[in-house]
Computed example of a mutant assay.
Amino acid sequence: MALIYQFGIILVALVVLDTVKSFADLDDDLSPSNRTGRRLGDRLKKPSMNLNNCETQTGHTGSCMTRFTCMRNGGTVSGFCGTYGVCCETNVQCGKTSKLKRTLIQTPTTIPTKCTYVFEPYSPNVCQIKIEMEEFRLQQPQSVTTGANVGDSVECNDRLEINDITLCGNNDGQHLYVPFDVAGGTDANVNLIFNLPSRDPISRWRLIVTQLECPSAASRKGLLPFAKNTGFQDLRNIFSSQNNDLPLLAPRGCSQYFTERTGTFESFNYNGGAGPYMSNLNYAICFQRQVGDSAIEFTFTDFGLPNEGVNNGYDADCHSLIPTTGRSDDYLLIPGAVVTSTLGALQPTYFCGTSSKGTKAIYAAAGPFVIYFNSDEYSSPQDLGFKITFNIA
């Protein structure tokens, strides 16, 4: 009898499973505030989940959803995807607000002196925003002409401001994670502000902004009352967008996060090796560590930071234990790294100078794979940046 009872539970779960998944996927296409008044015809269709990318007819990135959902959210249909979906561009204009899961923002026809995009939470579970810079080109950093650091520092005249990060120059292909603590009540919205006083005609941007959700505390409420204490999860939550976002969520505090096993990353405004990177940057670059991963190998394809010492550009050459005015404090920090050099095996933590170019560093320490970049308020001709290949083993 007990066996028949358990079989009945499993059979019901399997039947409900497909139905719930269909409706969960549909719910992912719209924010909670937009879920009323949908047509029955759209309920019967099963679109791809909102986080599925697609390629538009113009070769750019769009979101795969139903035609009705795309039009309702002010998007533009540009091609087809999935079984029933269309590739949708949800383009938000300067000065407007978006509550969509994924939003496209791009250069307006006329370059303004200021362009602000406001992002309100797609749901109460939003905890991060991922900004993918398909295209990002603003005026290069300029030498400071007023104040105490005249000629000794650079600043972004035309710039993008997101919280405490300021970017300018060429950042095509870069990405950035921004915290958006909706549940904690600390973030009502996130603003992306383009300040463009020069209105330089080279200014171009095309950014994909995705709101990512963390699992809610109520994600294990029972859907099947007769299956209480059997370990079944609420099937509505199994397929919610919160759980779909899990592979994309960056560890807390990471400004950049790479989930690939191998790839290449660059400093902001690497600019083909010409730089310069921006002053006053301090951010963490993280890499997904899976069960069984033992190490990550970094190959310094290109590397150029100021070097205050006479050695190989490690540790004390890069970062002084005693803060000293006017001394460079630009470095890439790789904890527990092992480097093979002409001096033999070294174990530096701070990297600077140019001698690391062409070398490899192995990071096999316990814990997450994370490195840090810091730039001070000063600038020099050596502020070129880095291009590094990584491989996780």
Rank of each mutant, 00 (worst) to 15 (best):
D181P: 12
L212T: 05
K228M: 02
T145C: 05
K228Y: 07
N243W: 14
E132W: 05
V150M: 11
L104F: 04
I208W: 01
N170V: 07
L224Y: 13
G222C: 15
P108Q: 13
E155S: 12
K101P: 03
Q174T: 07
L212M: 08
S123I: 02
N237L: 08
V190D: 00
M133D: 01
V209H: 01
Q233G: 07
E161D: 05
N189A: 03
N191E: 14
K114F: 10
R236K: 12
G184E: 14
G169C: 02
I193C: 01
F226H: 14
R137M: 03
Q106T: 14
A188L: 12
K101L: 11
L176T: 08
Q174C: 04
C168D: 02
C214I: 06
I208Q: 00
I162G: 06
A217G: 11
D164V: 14
L167K: 12
Q140E: 13
Q174P: 12
D152F: 03
P112M: 10
F136L: 02
L223G: 11
T146G: 00
S216V: 10
D200A: 09
F194Q: 00
G222R: 13
V144A: 15
L223Y: 08
Q211T: 06
D152P: 01
S123H: 03
T103M: 07
I129C: 00
S153W: 11
R204Q: 15
N171S: 03
K101E: 12
D200K: 10
A183E: 15
V182H: 03
N170Y: 09
K221H: 08
T230D: 13
C115M: 09
R204E: 10
T116A: 15
N171A: 08
L167Y: 10
V190M: 09
T210L: 12
T103I: 06
P225E: 06
A188Q: 15
N163C: 14
E120A: 08
S203Y: 06
L212K: 02
D234V: 04
G185R: 12
C168A: 04
T186P: 02
N157Q: 08
T166K: 05
R206K: 15
D200N: 14
R206S: 05
V178E: 03
L176I: 09
T109F: 07
L167T: 06
G184Q: 14
V144Q: 14
E155V: 10
A227T: 15
Q106D: 15
Q233N: 03
D158C: 13
F232H: 01
I105D: 02
R206H: 10
N244P: 00
Q233H: 03
G185F: 01
Y177H: 02
L212H: 03
N189T: 11
T107L: 00
P201M: 11
R199P: 13
L192N: 01
I193L: 11
F239L: 10
N243D: 09
R137I: 01
I111N: 05
P179G: 08
F194A: 01
Y122D: 14
S219M: 15
D164Y: 09
